[in-house]
Design a protein around this nucleic acid. Structure first.
Length: 414
DNA sequence: TCTGGGGTCCTAGGACCC
DNA sequence: TCTGGGGTCCTAGGACCC
């Protein structure tokens, strides 16, 4: 007797655009894009013209002159995304949420209550349609990889159940780029070798794939191509890093730009860490130049930090080194800060100034205790009055190319 | 007319330790 | 003087995913 396919992958179709068309009936059936300077999301009608997420608004308008731009209803995305995932939650607690609009679920334990996995998937799709007004595609299979591919094949607004007896038949005819982990670069390398389908990949010697894509990727893809996917549903993820970035257009790497930008980024990252009683030992700063080449520099500290000004200063030093290493670069186009090696801070330690030892090297600087107190005070005010009530980096308001609400949607739970 | 912002994981070289 | 090997951590870059 075979294992039944009980893994579902559910994926809301063109989610942000679908929400806009739900909220405003005039937009239904029309090519729309959420965003302005940059396309954050496009409706299927717009995708038909080649409009894609991340594309400059101007380019999108060239491709599709009748494209309608709408500013996003980000709070609605949050609400409806959560509501859709909650429908899954009515069937099983075994849910792994991937993003605002996508999740895996394992329904093995509830088929006696609700019917076969295929019936459950059909019910979920109907309920999301009826209760929320949104199309959602679902793949059902024995593994996450097949379920994910199933939902991609099912789009838009479809359901695909992969018959356990026909898994390799299903898989091997599909193009390699449908596999998890095959992006534009890997696809090009594989295609160059005449490998177009997953079946062709499966029948290529493991060694040549590893030579092409590296050992880890080669082994992973070979396993997936033969339908060996050991990954299980993971309901609790621990984030391994937290970061923030800001595109700047094209600017001279001037302290008057760099410092306030880094302070703002540090503020975003550090306050998120403090809210979850986390701190991190490794600070990474990224500078992108005008030609979009980027360099990173990182430092691993002896003790984890979560203080805004300290993070900003360390990032500032890293950025200074990067700029010094590239004296011929006249312009920068992006700054980013990331903190990793995250560690849970015990409540007791949290009330103490972290990195106090650093003060010795900075005579005259604010003490660690003073900084910590200032951070905590800001956190408290924000708890009561909202993020914008107080903080750093207000000078940057005008240069923000993407709304903060959009950023928040992309943040993973720490 | 060069594209936003949040992440994860892998690779490769070097330092350092036993 | 030249010779071995394994393991861990750090750093920089890159591919990929949503």
């Amino acid at each position: 007797m075979e294992t039944q396919p009980t893994i579902l992958h559910a994926d809301l179709d063109a989610f942000y655009a679908a929400v806009e068309q739900l909220l405003n009936p005039d937009l239904r059936g029309k090519p729309i894009a959420v965003g302005g300077g940059v396309v954050l999301a496009a409706s299927y009608e717009a995708k038909a013209f080649g409009v894609r997420g991340g594309m400059p608004g101007r380019r999108a308008r060239e491709l599709c002159p009748q494209l309608i731009f709408v500013s996003g209803h980000f709070a609605e995305y949050r609400r409806l995304g959560d509501a859709a995932i909650a429908v899954l939650g009515d069937f099983t607690p075994l849910i792994e949420r991937i993003s605002i609009d996508e999740a895996f679920a394992d329904v093995a334990g509830c088929t006696h209550l609700f019917g076969t996995p295929a019936e459950i998937a059909a019910t979920i799709r109907q309920r999301v349609r009826d209760e929320l007004g949104l199309p959602i595609s679902i793949g059902v299979a024995r593994t996450k990889h097949l379920a994910k591919i199933g939902s991609q094949v099912a789009k838009p607004d479809g359901l695909v159940v992969v018959d356990p007896r026909r898994e390799l038949d299903f898989l091997h005819d599909l193009p390699v780029e449908l596999m998890w982990g095959v992006g534009p670069i890997a696809k090009a390398k594989l295609n160059e070798q005449g490998i177009l389908t997953i079946g062709q990949l499966a029948n290529t010697p493991g060694r040549s794939i590893e030579r092409l894509l590296g050992v880890a990727a080669g082994e992973k893809l070979a396993a997936l191509a033969w339908n060996r996917d050991p990954r299980e549903i993971r309901t609790h993820h621990r984030a391994r890093s937290a970061g923030a970035q800001s595109a700047l257009g094209k600017r001279r790497p001037d302290d008057r730009i760099v410092q306030p930008t880094l302070l703002h980024l540090a503020d975003r990252v550090a306050s998120r860490l403090r809210a979850k009683s986390l701190a991190g030992r490794t600070v990474t700063a990224r500078v992108r130049f005008a030609d979009l080449r980027a360099v990173t520099r990182s430092i691993t500290l002896d003790a984890p930090i979560a203080a805004t000004t300290m993070l900003a200063e360390i990032a500032g030093e890293l950025v200074r080194q990067e700029l010094a290493d590239h004296p011929r670069e006249k312009y920068i186009s992006l700054l980013a800060i990331s903190v990793s090696h995250l560690d849970e801070q015990r409540a007791l330690q949290l009330d103490l100034p972290l990195g106090l030892a650093d003060e010795r090297r900075r005579p005259g600087a604010k003490t660690g205790m003073a900084r910590w107190t200032a951070d905590k005070a800001i956190d408290k005010i924000r708890e009561r009055f909202g993020w914008d009530a107080v903080g750093y980096g207000s000078a940057l308001e005008t240069s923000r190319s993407v709304p903060d609400e959009f950023r928040k949607l992309a943040e993973k739970e720490l």
